[in-house]
Amino acid sequence: MLEGLYAAAAGMEAQQQQMDAVGNDLANVSTSGYKAERVGFSDLLYNKVNQAGTSTTTGAGALSRVIGRSSAQGAFQQTGEPLDLAIQGEGFFQIKSAGKLALTRDGALSVDGKGQLVTSDGSLLDPPITLPAGVATGEITISQDGAVRAGTRTLGTIALVSVPAPDHLLADGSGAFTPTAASGAPKAVSGATIHQGALEGSNVDMASEMTTMVSTQRNYQLASTAIQTQNQMLAIANQLRS
């Protein structure tokens, strides 16, 4: 009897995690380069109930976990800023964040005090690109293959990299991701292009997030009703000797 109570409670917990992911996605609907979370559900162990020679099985509820992130392309926002970059296709900018290698799709770059190109949180591009003294940001052109030029001078190339399993990148909370053993090491990608003067918007789809939210809430409610019913049944059993 109590198994059903816990099965339904596990179901509520799984829905709660889905709701957390929806909340996070909706909060990041305007974050450049943000990728929506993918949540996966699975059932749990099955117990055999043996009674009078028959074997009946009852399940132990459900579990949810974040499987990874949606790889869908976010919409481009034209900004006209010479140091705003958007990636079309698979791939990330490689940056050094506090001395560690990290990956990001947020291409809102700026120039720091030393003339180096940095991301919005101050991380250097890897390999670093330095603007010579006297070069204004307006003179910089960045081609689709990542070559950075000031007039006719080539200042460097912005590399696009990816990992074999992007779903296992560790989000560090500032829009950047750290490669892990499960994601594999970054290596150069081909086929993706860089667009100057644009930013990639969040790929969160409001309509599908709202739909997920409604169904999550209803499924949470269903599981809670199951707990209430089990509770009523326990009360009925308690009143056997009235």
Binding site: E3, G4, A8, T58, G59, T216, T225
Partner: peptide
């Protein structure tokens, strides 16, 4: 009671793909 346990498990898996 057993039937109720199974219904609870079904409802807990209302979002599980392929359940």
């Amino acid at each position: 009671q057993t039937r109720q346990d199974q219904i609870s498990n079904d409802l807990a898996n209302a979002s599980t793909p392929g359940y």
